[in-house]
Amino acid sequence: MTKSDLVAAIAEKAGIRKKDAEAALNAFLEVVTEALAKGDKVEIRGFGTFLMKERAPRVARNPRTGEKVEVPAKLTPAFKPGKDLKEATEKELKKKRK
């Protein structure tokens, strides 16, 4: 599903114009991005939590030269699904497998 597909689905479910749905989605994405950049987490009960996770430093290998490269530790955005989301997706997957 692309962003435009998501906008169309939100507009249909909410009974609003696509333009309004896109504005709401863009605002949501901006708020989440700003919160993560400040080091906060965004928790939506039942859906999940957006947070920053630290990746440990590691040694990687350049595939072209085979040379070892030090990759420093860094923070990266992550999503942890909530219980309700896990249950709903699991239920849908079971339906599709039958």
Rank of each mutant, 00 (worst) to 15 (best):
A56Y: 07
L85Q: 01
T49E: 04
D5R: 01
P81A: 11
D84L: 07
L93D: 09
T2M: 00
R45F: 13
L6E: 13
E22H: 04
G82H: 08
A35I: 12
K38R: 15
L6V: 05
K83M: 04
D40N: 14
A37W: 07
E54P: 00
G66I: 08
S4K: 07
K94I: 06
D84Y: 09
E30V: 02
D40P: 06
T89W: 02
L75N: 07
L29H: 14
V32R: 14
R64Q: 12
T2P: 01
R61W: 04
V42F: 14
E87V: 04
K74S: 15
V69S: 10
P72T: 03
P57D: 05
D5S: 06
V69M: 06
K91V: 02
K13C: 00
K13H: 08
F28N: 13
R45H: 14
V31I: 15
I10P: 01
E54D: 03
K41L: 06
T49K: 04
P63A: 06
L51R: 03
P72R: 11
V32N: 15
K68P: 12
K83S: 05
K41R: 14
E22G: 08
L29E: 15
A11Q: 06
K3R: 12
K38Y: 09
A8T: 03
T76Q: 04
L93V: 09
K3T: 02
E30S: 13
A27E: 10
V31E: 15
A88S: 03
A73T: 08
A9V: 00
I16S: 04
I16F: 00
E43A: 11
K74W: 05
L51K: 04
R55A: 03
R45Q: 12
K19W: 08
P77Y: 10
R64P: 06
K94S: 09
L51M: 09
A88L: 02
D5Q: 07
A24R: 00
A73M: 05
T89Y: 08
E87R: 07
A37P: 03
P57A: 09
E92L: 07
E34V: 13
K3M: 05
K19C: 03
R45G: 12
A8E: 10
E67I: 15
G82P: 00
E43R: 11
A9S: 08
M52G: 03
N26T: 13
D40Y: 11
E34G: 05
G46T: 02
F50K: 06
A73E: 15
G46P: 03
I44D: 12
R55K: 09
G82N: 12
R45Y: 12
N26R: 09
L36W: 03
K95C: 06
N26E: 08
A21W: 00
K38D: 15
A56S: 10
G66N: 12
K95D: 10
L51P: 00
K80N: 08
T65V: 12
L36T: 14
E92Y: 10
T33W: 14
G48E: 01
R58A: 14
A24P: 04
E67G: 10
G48F: 01
R61S: 15
G15M: 03
T65W: 13
F47A: 06
D20Q: 14
V69E: 11
E43I: 13
A21S: 08
E70A: 05
K13Y: 00
K98S: 06
P77L: 11
A60Y: 06
N62D: 14
D40E: 15
A24K: 01
R64C: 05
A78V: 02
F79S: 02
E22P: 00
T2H: 01
K41I: 06
